[in-house]
Design a protein around this nucleic acid. Structure first.
Lengths: 245, 245
DNA sequence: ACAAAAGTGTTATCAGTACACCCATGC
DNA sequence: GCATGGGTGTACTGATAACACTTTTGT
Protein backbone atom coordinates (compact mmCIF):
# COMPACT_ATOMS: atom_id res chain seq x y z
CA UNK A 1 0.00 0.00 0.00
CA UNK A 2 1.31 3.39 -1.01
CA UNK A 3 1.54 6.20 1.50
CA UNK A 4 -1.20 8.78 1.14
CA UNK A 5 -0.35 12.35 0.29
CA UNK A 6 -1.63 15.12 2.52
CA UNK A 7 -3.52 17.27 0.05
CA UNK A 8 -3.20 20.61 1.83
CA UNK A 9 0.41 20.52 3.01
CA UNK A 10 3.33 20.82 0.66
CA UNK A 11 7.02 21.55 0.69
CA UNK A 12 8.75 23.91 -1.73
CA UNK A 13 12.47 23.84 -2.29
CA UNK A 14 14.63 26.79 -3.22
CA UNK A 15 17.76 25.19 -4.64
CA UNK A 16 20.70 27.59 -4.58
CA UNK A 17 23.58 26.60 -6.83
CA UNK A 18 26.80 28.54 -6.91
CA UNK A 19 28.72 28.56 -10.18
CA UNK A 20 32.31 29.15 -9.26
CA UNK A 21 33.45 29.90 -12.80
CA UNK A 22 30.84 32.52 -13.64
CA UNK A 23 30.62 33.68 -10.02
CA UNK A 24 26.90 33.45 -10.07
CA UNK A 25 24.41 32.42 -7.41
CA UNK A 26 21.60 30.61 -9.17
CA UNK A 27 18.21 29.19 -8.36
CA UNK A 28 16.96 25.97 -9.90
CA UNK A 29 13.51 26.28 -11.46
CA UNK A 30 11.24 24.01 -13.42
CA UNK A 31 8.85 24.91 -16.19
CA UNK A 32 5.14 25.19 -15.69
CA UNK A 33 3.55 24.75 -19.07
CA UNK A 34 -0.02 24.03 -20.05
CA UNK A 35 -1.76 24.10 -23.42
CA UNK A 36 -5.50 24.20 -23.88
CA UNK A 37 -6.86 20.87 -25.07
CA UNK A 38 -9.36 22.70 -27.26
CA UNK A 39 -7.44 25.28 -29.23
CA UNK A 40 -3.75 24.80 -28.54
CA UNK A 41 -3.64 28.12 -26.77
CA UNK A 42 -0.85 28.31 -24.25
CA UNK A 43 -2.55 28.78 -20.93
CA UNK A 44 0.39 28.69 -18.56
CA UNK A 45 4.05 29.14 -19.38
CA UNK A 46 6.25 30.24 -16.55
CA UNK A 47 8.55 28.81 -13.92
CA UNK A 48 8.14 27.48 -10.41
CA UNK A 49 10.14 25.97 -7.61
CA UNK A 50 10.16 22.26 -7.21
CA UNK A 51 7.88 20.95 -4.50
CA UNK A 52 5.46 18.28 -3.56
CA UNK A 53 2.93 17.29 -0.98
CA UNK A 54 3.95 15.65 2.27
CA UNK A 55 3.08 12.02 2.71
CA UNK A 56 1.17 10.79 5.74
CA UNK A 57 4.10 8.73 6.94
CA UNK A 58 7.03 11.09 6.59
CA UNK A 59 8.41 14.10 8.42
CA UNK A 60 8.46 17.46 6.67
CA UNK A 61 12.24 17.28 6.51
CA UNK A 62 11.92 13.95 4.76
CA UNK A 63 9.53 15.44 2.23
CA UNK A 64 12.05 18.10 1.37
CA UNK A 65 14.86 15.58 1.01
CA UNK A 66 12.70 13.33 -1.11
CA UNK A 67 11.67 16.16 -3.43
CA UNK A 68 15.26 17.18 -3.87
CA UNK A 69 16.48 13.67 -4.51
CA UNK A 70 13.75 13.18 -7.07
CA UNK A 71 14.79 16.33 -8.90
CA UNK A 72 18.56 16.14 -8.66
CA UNK A 73 19.45 12.62 -7.58
CA UNK A 74 21.37 14.20 -4.72
CA UNK A 75 21.37 13.37 -1.03
CA UNK A 76 22.86 14.83 2.10
CA UNK A 77 22.83 18.42 0.99
CA UNK A 78 22.65 21.37 3.35
CA UNK A 79 18.96 21.95 3.97
CA UNK A 80 17.18 24.68 5.86
CA UNK A 81 13.51 25.06 6.69
CA UNK A 82 13.06 28.79 6.76
CA UNK A 83 9.41 29.78 6.56
CA UNK A 84 5.82 28.72 6.04
CA UNK A 85 3.63 30.32 3.42
CA UNK A 86 -0.02 29.93 4.24
CA UNK A 87 -1.97 32.89 2.94
CA UNK A 88 -5.39 31.64 1.80
CA UNK A 89 -4.89 33.55 -1.44
CA UNK A 90 -1.35 32.50 -2.18
CA UNK A 91 -2.34 30.30 -5.12
CA UNK A 92 -5.08 32.42 -6.52
CA UNK A 93 -3.90 34.46 -9.41
CA UNK A 94 -5.31 33.55 -12.81
CA UNK A 95 -2.66 31.16 -14.03
CA UNK A 96 -2.38 29.47 -10.68
CA UNK A 97 -6.09 28.70 -10.71
CA UNK A 98 -5.90 27.21 -14.21
CA UNK A 99 -2.97 25.12 -13.12
CA UNK A 100 -4.57 23.93 -9.91
CA UNK A 101 -7.75 22.99 -11.72
CA UNK A 102 -5.69 20.91 -14.10
CA UNK A 103 -3.61 19.27 -11.38
CA UNK A 104 -6.51 18.87 -9.00
CA UNK A 105 -4.93 19.89 -5.75
CA UNK A 106 -6.20 21.83 -2.80
CA UNK A 107 -6.53 25.59 -3.30
CA UNK A 108 -5.85 26.15 0.37
CA UNK A 109 -2.46 24.50 0.53
CA UNK A 110 0.14 25.74 2.92
CA UNK A 111 3.73 25.20 1.95
CA UNK A 112 6.75 24.76 4.14
CA UNK A 113 9.68 26.29 2.35
CA UNK A 114 13.25 24.98 2.44
CA UNK A 115 16.41 26.04 0.78
CA UNK A 116 19.27 23.84 -0.28
CA UNK A 117 22.86 24.71 -1.03
CA UNK A 118 25.07 23.07 -3.66
CA UNK A 119 27.29 23.78 -6.62
CA UNK A 120 25.38 24.33 -9.85
CA UNK A 121 27.34 21.71 -11.73
CA UNK A 122 26.35 18.96 -9.31
CA UNK A 123 22.94 18.84 -10.95
CA UNK A 124 22.60 16.99 -14.26
CA UNK A 125 20.25 19.09 -16.34
CA UNK A 126 20.27 16.93 -19.51
CA UNK A 127 17.72 14.13 -19.73
CA UNK A 128 16.08 15.35 -16.57
CA UNK A 129 12.34 14.72 -16.79
CA UNK A 130 11.59 17.89 -14.83
CA UNK A 131 13.55 20.08 -17.25
CA UNK A 132 15.15 22.15 -14.52
CA UNK A 133 17.10 25.28 -15.38
CA UNK A 134 19.37 27.61 -13.45
CA UNK A 135 18.54 31.29 -13.17
CA UNK A 136 20.65 33.93 -11.46
CA UNK A 137 18.99 34.86 -8.19
CA UNK A 138 19.05 38.49 -9.27
CA UNK A 139 17.53 37.86 -12.66
CA UNK A 140 14.63 35.49 -12.29
CA UNK A 141 11.99 34.77 -14.93
CA UNK A 142 8.25 35.06 -14.41
CA UNK A 143 7.31 32.86 -11.48
CA UNK A 144 4.11 31.05 -10.64
CA UNK A 145 2.27 30.95 -7.31
CA UNK A 146 3.95 32.98 -4.59
CA UNK A 147 7.35 31.61 -5.51
CA UNK A 148 8.91 34.98 -6.11
CA UNK A 149 8.26 35.87 -2.48
CA UNK A 150 9.51 32.49 -1.32
CA UNK A 151 12.80 32.91 -3.16
CA UNK A 152 13.20 36.42 -1.81
CA UNK A 153 12.78 35.18 1.76
CA UNK A 154 15.14 32.29 1.17
CA UNK A 155 17.79 34.60 -0.23
CA UNK A 156 17.41 37.00 2.63
CA UNK A 157 17.82 34.18 5.14
CA UNK A 158 20.85 32.87 3.27
CA UNK A 159 22.49 36.30 3.38
CA UNK A 160 22.05 36.48 7.13
CA UNK A 161 23.04 32.89 7.82
CA UNK A 162 26.25 32.91 5.79
CA UNK A 163 27.64 35.55 8.14
CA UNK A 164 27.21 33.47 11.26
CA UNK A 165 27.38 29.86 10.11
CA UNK A 166 29.95 28.18 7.91
CA UNK A 167 27.55 27.42 5.09
CA UNK A 168 29.37 29.07 2.16
CA UNK A 169 31.44 25.93 2.00
CA UNK A 170 28.33 24.05 0.92
CA UNK A 171 28.37 26.10 -2.27
CA UNK A 172 32.01 25.30 -3.06
CA UNK A 173 33.91 22.18 -4.08
CA UNK A 174 35.75 20.29 -1.34
CA UNK A 175 38.99 21.90 -2.40
CA UNK A 176 38.79 25.57 -3.12
CA UNK A 177 40.96 28.66 -3.29
CA UNK A 178 40.71 31.65 -1.00
CA UNK A 179 39.64 33.71 -4.00
CA UNK A 180 36.75 31.35 -4.68
CA UNK A 181 35.68 31.64 -1.07
CA UNK A 182 35.78 35.39 -1.34
CA UNK A 183 33.85 35.28 -4.62
CA UNK A 184 31.16 33.22 -2.96
CA UNK A 185 30.75 35.75 -0.17
CA UNK A 186 30.78 38.70 -2.54
CA UNK A 187 28.24 37.03 -4.73
CA UNK A 188 25.83 36.06 -1.97
CA UNK A 189 26.06 39.39 -0.21
CA UNK A 190 26.27 41.52 -3.32
CA UNK A 191 29.23 43.48 -2.00
CA UNK A 192 32.93 43.89 -2.70
CA UNK A 193 35.43 42.76 -0.12
CA UNK A 194 39.04 43.90 0.16
CA UNK A 195 41.13 40.85 -0.66
CA UNK A 196 43.93 41.63 1.80
CA UNK A 197 41.57 42.01 4.73
CA UNK A 198 39.58 38.98 3.69
CA UNK A 199 42.63 36.74 3.34
CA UNK A 200 44.09 37.83 6.63
CA UNK A 201 40.87 37.21 8.42
CA UNK A 202 40.07 33.83 6.92
CA UNK A 203 43.59 32.41 6.75
CA UNK A 204 43.97 32.70 10.50
CA UNK A 205 41.02 30.34 10.98
CA UNK A 206 42.15 26.92 12.14
CA UNK A 207 39.30 25.20 10.36
CA UNK A 208 40.67 26.22 6.98
CA UNK A 209 43.21 23.56 6.09
CA UNK A 210 45.89 24.52 3.63
CA UNK A 211 46.58 21.62 1.28
CA UNK A 212 49.84 20.67 -0.38
CA UNK A 213 48.10 21.06 -3.70
CA UNK A 214 47.60 23.73 -6.25
CA UNK A 215 45.05 24.35 -8.91
CA UNK A 216 45.70 22.49 -12.16
CA UNK A 217 44.69 23.47 -15.68
CA UNK A 218 44.46 27.16 -15.01
CA UNK A 219 45.99 29.49 -17.54
CA UNK A 220 47.79 31.71 -15.07
CA UNK A 221 49.53 31.37 -11.74
CA UNK A 222 47.84 28.48 -9.93
CA UNK A 223 46.54 29.10 -6.47
CA UNK A 224 46.83 27.07 -3.30
CA UNK A 225 43.91 24.89 -2.38
CA UNK A 226 42.15 24.75 0.97
CA UNK A 227 39.62 22.55 2.67
CA UNK A 228 37.07 23.32 5.34
CA UNK A 229 37.18 21.09 8.40
CA UNK A 230 33.77 20.89 10.01
CA UNK A 231 35.29 18.90 12.88
CA UNK A 232 37.73 21.61 13.79
CA UNK A 233 35.08 24.26 13.32
CA UNK A 234 32.81 22.57 15.82
CA UNK A 235 35.61 22.04 18.29
CA UNK A 236 36.68 25.65 18.36
CA UNK A 237 33.18 27.06 18.03
CA UNK A 238 32.39 29.41 20.85
CA UNK A 239 29.02 30.94 21.49
CA UNK A 240 29.06 34.68 21.10
CA UNK A 241 26.94 36.96 23.23
CA UNK A 242 27.83 40.13 21.44
CA UNK A 243 24.92 42.52 21.34
CA UNK A 244 24.84 44.04 17.87
CA UNK A 245 21.84 46.30 17.83
CA UNK B 1 -21.66 30.84 8.21
CA UNK B 2 -18.72 30.10 10.42
CA UNK B 3 -15.28 29.58 8.90
CA UNK B 4 -14.19 25.97 8.79
CA UNK B 5 -11.16 24.86 10.72
CA UNK B 6 -8.41 23.03 8.91
CA UNK B 7 -8.17 19.83 10.93
CA UNK B 8 -4.53 18.98 10.26
CA UNK B 9 -2.88 22.40 10.53
CA UNK B 10 -2.47 24.20 13.81
CA UNK B 11 -0.52 27.02 15.36
CA UNK B 12 1.19 26.84 18.74
CA UNK B 13 2.24 29.93 20.63
CA UNK B 14 5.16 30.20 22.98
CA UNK B 15 4.37 33.27 25.03
CA UNK B 16 7.49 34.68 26.68
CA UNK B 17 6.83 37.05 29.52
CA UNK B 18 9.57 38.91 31.30
CA UNK B 19 9.04 39.76 34.92
CA UNK B 20 11.15 42.80 35.61
CA UNK B 21 10.87 42.58 39.40
CA UNK B 22 11.88 38.94 39.78
CA UNK B 23 14.17 39.10 36.75
CA UNK B 24 12.63 35.99 35.33
CA UNK B 25 11.87 34.97 31.77
CA UNK B 26 8.66 32.98 31.83
CA UNK B 27 6.54 30.92 29.50
CA UNK B 28 2.77 30.98 29.63
CA UNK B 29 1.22 27.50 29.81
CA UNK B 30 -2.26 26.16 30.16
CA UNK B 31 -3.39 23.05 31.95
CA UNK B 32 -4.28 19.87 30.17
CA UNK B 33 -6.50 17.91 32.48
CA UNK B 34 -8.75 14.93 31.84
CA UNK B 35 -10.58 12.61 34.20
CA UNK B 36 -11.98 9.25 33.22
CA UNK B 37 -15.78 9.32 32.97
CA UNK B 38 -15.91 5.82 34.41
CA UNK B 39 -13.80 5.82 37.54
CA UNK B 40 -12.63 9.35 38.17
CA UNK B 41 -9.08 8.32 37.46
CA UNK B 42 -6.97 11.25 36.31
CA UNK B 43 -5.91 10.35 32.78
CA UNK B 44 -4.05 13.48 31.78
CA UNK B 45 -2.69 16.20 34.01
CA UNK B 46 0.11 18.25 32.57
CA UNK B 47 0.68 21.50 30.74
CA UNK B 48 0.73 22.62 27.14
CA UNK B 49 1.21 25.69 25.02
CA UNK B 50 -1.80 27.52 23.77
CA UNK B 51 -2.69 26.80 20.18
CA UNK B 52 -5.50 26.19 17.80
CA UNK B 53 -6.26 25.11 14.29
CA UNK B 54 -6.07 27.48 11.37
CA UNK B 55 -9.31 28.54 9.78
CA UNK B 56 -9.89 28.18 6.05
CA UNK B 57 -10.17 31.92 5.60
CA UNK B 58 -7.24 33.26 7.57
CA UNK B 59 -3.48 33.49 7.19
CA UNK B 60 -1.27 31.56 9.57
CA UNK B 61 -0.13 34.83 11.10
CA UNK B 62 -3.76 35.68 11.75
CA UNK B 63 -4.30 32.36 13.45
CA UNK B 64 -1.45 33.08 15.81
CA UNK B 65 -2.73 36.55 16.60
CA UNK B 66 -6.22 35.24 17.13
CA UNK B 67 -5.05 32.49 19.49
CA UNK B 68 -3.09 34.98 21.50
CA UNK B 69 -5.88 37.50 21.69
CA UNK B 70 -8.24 34.79 22.84
CA UNK B 71 -5.87 33.79 25.64
CA UNK B 72 -4.60 37.15 26.78
CA UNK B 73 -6.88 39.79 25.30
CA UNK B 74 -3.77 41.40 23.86
CA UNK B 75 -3.09 42.63 20.35
CA UNK B 76 -0.14 43.98 18.46
CA UNK B 77 2.51 42.06 20.30
CA UNK B 78 5.85 41.10 18.83
CA UNK B 79 5.28 37.83 17.02
CA UNK B 80 7.71 35.52 15.32
CA UNK B 81 7.03 32.39 13.29
CA UNK B 82 10.09 30.29 13.95
CA UNK B 83 9.57 26.67 12.99
CA UNK B 84 7.20 23.97 11.83
CA UNK B 85 6.80 20.74 13.73
CA UNK B 86 5.50 17.98 11.52
CA UNK B 87 6.84 14.65 12.65
CA UNK B 88 4.12 12.04 12.07
CA UNK B 89 4.69 10.81 15.62
CA UNK B 90 4.78 14.14 17.38
CA UNK B 91 1.43 13.62 19.10
CA UNK B 92 1.73 9.94 19.82
CA UNK B 93 2.80 9.33 23.35
CA UNK B 94 0.24 7.71 25.63
CA UNK B 95 -1.33 10.80 27.17
CA UNK B 96 -1.40 12.64 23.87
CA UNK B 97 -3.39 9.79 22.33
CA UNK B 98 -5.90 9.81 25.16
CA UNK B 99 -6.26 13.54 24.78
CA UNK B 100 -6.62 13.48 21.03
CA UNK B 101 -9.24 10.74 21.22
CA UNK B 102 -11.18 12.91 23.64
CA UNK B 103 -10.81 16.09 21.60
CA UNK B 104 -11.28 14.36 18.27
CA UNK B 105 -8.63 16.04 16.21
CA UNK B 106 -6.31 14.76 13.55
CA UNK B 107 -3.40 12.64 14.77
CA UNK B 108 -1.29 13.83 11.89
CA UNK B 109 -1.44 17.52 12.62
CA UNK B 110 1.46 19.76 11.77
CA UNK B 111 1.91 22.84 13.85
CA UNK B 112 3.42 26.13 12.94
CA UNK B 113 5.10 27.52 16.01
CA UNK B 114 5.27 31.18 16.96
CA UNK B 115 6.67 33.00 19.89
CA UNK B 116 5.39 36.22 21.39
CA UNK B 117 7.12 38.72 23.64
CA UNK B 118 5.52 40.72 26.41
CA UNK B 119 5.79 41.61 30.08
CA UNK B 120 4.37 38.96 32.39
CA UNK B 121 2.12 41.37 34.17
CA UNK B 122 0.32 42.37 30.98
CA UNK B 123 -1.61 39.12 31.13
CA UNK B 124 -4.57 38.90 33.52
CA UNK B 125 -4.39 35.43 35.01
CA UNK B 126 -7.43 35.69 37.32
CA UNK B 127 -10.79 34.73 35.90
CA UNK B 128 -9.15 33.53 32.74
CA UNK B 129 -11.08 30.56 31.37
CA UNK B 130 -7.91 28.93 30.10
CA UNK B 131 -6.24 29.02 33.51
CA UNK B 132 -2.90 30.08 32.18
CA UNK B 133 0.16 30.11 34.43
CA UNK B 134 3.68 31.44 34.13
CA UNK B 135 6.65 29.10 34.45
CA UNK B 136 10.30 30.10 34.33
CA UNK B 137 11.73 29.02 31.01
CA UNK B 138 14.46 27.15 32.85
CA UNK B 139 12.10 25.33 35.16
CA UNK B 140 9.18 24.02 33.17
CA UNK B 141 6.63 21.48 34.37
CA UNK B 142 5.77 18.28 32.56
CA UNK B 143 4.65 19.17 29.06
CA UNK B 144 2.28 17.46 26.66
CA UNK B 145 2.78 16.72 22.97
CA UNK B 146 6.16 17.89 21.66
CA UNK B 147 5.82 21.20 23.43
CA UNK B 148 9.04 20.84 25.37
CA UNK B 149 10.93 20.73 22.10
CA UNK B 150 8.93 23.63 20.71
CA UNK B 151 9.76 25.82 23.70
CA UNK B 152 13.42 24.85 23.49
CA UNK B 153 13.57 25.91 19.85
CA UNK B 154 11.71 29.12 20.56
CA UNK B 155 14.09 30.00 23.36
CA UNK B 156 17.10 29.24 21.23
CA UNK B 157 15.76 31.48 18.46
CA UNK B 158 15.02 34.23 20.96
CA UNK B 159 18.57 34.09 22.31
CA UNK B 160 19.98 34.50 18.84
CA UNK B 161 17.52 37.17 17.73
CA UNK B 162 17.90 39.43 20.76
CA UNK B 163 21.54 39.95 19.82
CA UNK B 164 20.79 41.28 16.37
CA UNK B 165 17.34 42.81 16.59
CA UNK B 166 15.96 45.29 19.13
CA UNK B 167 13.42 42.90 20.57
CA UNK B 168 14.34 43.03 24.27
CA UNK B 169 12.34 46.21 24.43
CA UNK B 170 9.21 44.15 23.77
CA UNK B 171 9.79 42.51 27.15
CA UNK B 172 10.09 45.78 29.03
CA UNK B 173 7.72 48.59 29.90
CA UNK B 174 7.77 51.68 27.72
CA UNK B 175 9.89 53.47 30.26
CA UNK B 176 12.70 51.43 31.73
CA UNK B 177 16.04 51.84 33.43
CA UNK B 178 19.37 50.79 32.00
CA UNK B 179 19.62 48.22 34.76
CA UNK B 180 16.33 46.66 33.72
CA UNK B 181 17.55 46.47 30.15
CA UNK B 182 20.70 44.76 31.33
CA UNK B 183 18.69 42.39 33.51
CA UNK B 184 16.59 41.42 30.50
CA UNK B 185 19.68 40.58 28.46
CA UNK B 186 21.32 38.69 31.30
CA UNK B 187 18.17 36.75 31.91
CA UNK B 188 17.52 35.81 28.30
CA UNK B 189 21.12 34.89 27.59
CA UNK B 190 21.85 33.34 30.97
CA UNK B 191 25.07 35.29 31.36
CA UNK B 192 26.46 38.09 33.48
CA UNK B 193 27.35 41.38 31.87
CA UNK B 194 29.70 44.01 33.25
CA UNK B 195 27.50 46.99 34.05
CA UNK B 196 30.07 49.64 33.10
CA UNK B 197 30.67 48.14 29.67
CA UNK B 198 26.99 47.57 29.13
CA UNK B 199 26.02 51.10 30.04
CA UNK B 200 28.72 52.65 27.93
CA UNK B 201 27.72 50.60 24.94
CA UNK B 202 24.00 51.12 25.17
CA UNK B 203 23.96 54.72 26.31
CA UNK B 204 25.77 55.80 23.15
CA UNK B 205 22.87 54.51 21.07
CA UNK B 206 20.78 57.29 19.64
CA UNK B 207 17.63 55.21 19.75
CA UNK B 208 17.72 55.14 23.53
CA UNK B 209 16.01 58.32 24.64
CA UNK B 210 16.85 59.61 28.10
CA UNK B 211 13.75 60.97 29.76
CA UNK B 212 13.44 63.81 32.25
CA UNK B 213 11.93 61.35 34.66
CA UNK B 214 13.07 59.11 37.41
CA UNK B 215 11.68 56.01 38.98
CA UNK B 216 9.12 56.63 41.66
CA UNK B 217 8.27 54.47 44.62
CA UNK B 218 11.60 52.73 44.87
CA UNK B 219 13.17 52.40 48.27
CA UNK B 220 16.63 53.57 47.28
CA UNK B 221 18.17 56.02 44.86
CA UNK B 222 15.78 56.29 41.93
CA UNK B 223 17.16 55.65 38.49
CA UNK B 224 16.77 57.57 35.25
CA UNK B 225 14.21 56.31 32.82
CA UNK B 226 14.72 55.66 29.12
CA UNK B 227 12.59 54.91 26.11
CA UNK B 228 13.35 52.99 22.94
CA UNK B 229 12.64 54.83 19.70
CA UNK B 230 11.87 52.39 16.92
CA UNK B 231 11.79 55.25 14.45
CA UNK B 232 15.31 56.32 15.21
CA UNK B 233 16.46 52.72 15.27
CA UNK B 234 15.17 52.13 11.79
CA UNK B 235 16.61 55.37 10.50
CA UNK B 236 20.12 54.67 11.72
CA UNK B 237 19.99 50.93 11.05
CA UNK B 238 22.82 49.89 8.80
CA UNK B 239 23.20 46.46 7.30
CA UNK B 240 26.29 44.73 8.58
CA UNK B 241 28.29 42.39 6.42
CA UNK B 242 30.65 41.26 9.11
CA UNK B 243 31.61 37.65 8.64
CA UNK B 244 31.59 36.05 12.09
CA UNK B 245 32.43 32.43 11.54
C1' DA C 1 58.95 39.17 -21.77
C1' DC C 2 54.40 39.72 -20.92
C1' DA C 3 49.84 39.20 -19.07
C1' DA C 4 47.18 37.69 -15.45
C1' DA C 5 46.10 36.52 -11.14
C1' DA C 6 48.22 35.30 -6.54
C1' DG C 7 49.86 36.94 -2.68
C1' DT C 8 51.55 40.30 0.82
C1' DG C 9 52.14 44.70 5.27
C1' DT C 10 51.33 48.86 7.67
C1' DT C 11 48.82 52.19 9.95
C1' DA C 12 44.82 54.32 12.16
C1' DT C 13 40.73 53.78 14.32
C1' DC C 14 37.21 51.58 16.80
C1' DA C 15 35.18 48.21 19.89
C1' DG C 16 35.49 45.03 23.46
C1' DT C 17 37.17 43.54 27.95
C1' DA C 18 38.73 43.80 32.55
C1' DC C 19 38.53 46.02 36.61
C1' DA C 20 36.91 49.13 41.65
C1' DC C 21 35.18 53.04 43.69
C1' DC C 22 32.26 57.25 44.62
C1' DC C 23 27.58 59.23 44.73
C1' DA C 24 22.81 60.17 45.50
C1' DT C 25 18.88 58.99 47.69
C1' DG C 26 15.38 57.01 50.91
C1' DC C 27 14.92 55.41 55.20
C1' DG D 1 24.31 58.40 59.12
C1' DC D 2 24.02 54.43 56.73
C1' DA D 3 22.65 50.97 53.59
C1' DT D 4 21.45 50.31 48.95
C1' DG D 5 21.71 50.44 44.36
C1' DG D 6 22.98 54.05 40.69
C1' DG D 7 26.42 55.68 38.32
C1' DT D 8 31.22 56.46 36.53
C1' DG D 9 36.82 56.13 33.97
C1' DT D 10 40.99 54.08 32.33
C1' DA D 11 44.18 51.15 30.20
C1' DC D 12 44.86 47.14 27.31
C1' DT D 13 44.03 44.37 23.65
C1' DG D 14 42.26 42.69 19.44
C1' DA D 15 39.66 43.48 15.17
C1' DT D 16 38.42 46.16 11.31
C1' DA D 17 39.13 49.27 7.42
C1' DA D 18 41.73 51.69 4.20
C1' DC D 19 45.18 51.45 1.10
C1' DA D 20 49.05 49.60 -3.59
C1' DC D 21 52.65 46.98 -4.98
C1' DT D 22 55.52 42.63 -5.75
C1' DT D 23 55.69 37.80 -7.01
C1' DT D 24 54.78 33.79 -9.43
C1' DT D 25 53.37 31.32 -13.10
C1' DG D 26 51.76 29.88 -17.88
C1' DT D 27 51.91 31.11 -22.39
Amino acid sequence: MKAQIIPNISVDCVVFGFDVTTKSLNVLLIERYLKSTENDEVLVNDHVLTGYHTLETETIDDTASRVLKELTGLDNLYKKQFKVFGDPNRLRNEKDLIWIKNEKFNERTITIAYYFLLQSHEVRLENNTHKPQWFPVNNLPELGFDHKAIIAEAYSDLKAKCLIEPIVFELLPNKFTVKELQDAYECILGIEIDNRNFRRKLLTKKYLIELDEKQVGVSKKPSKLFMFSKDIYQKIYKESYLISI
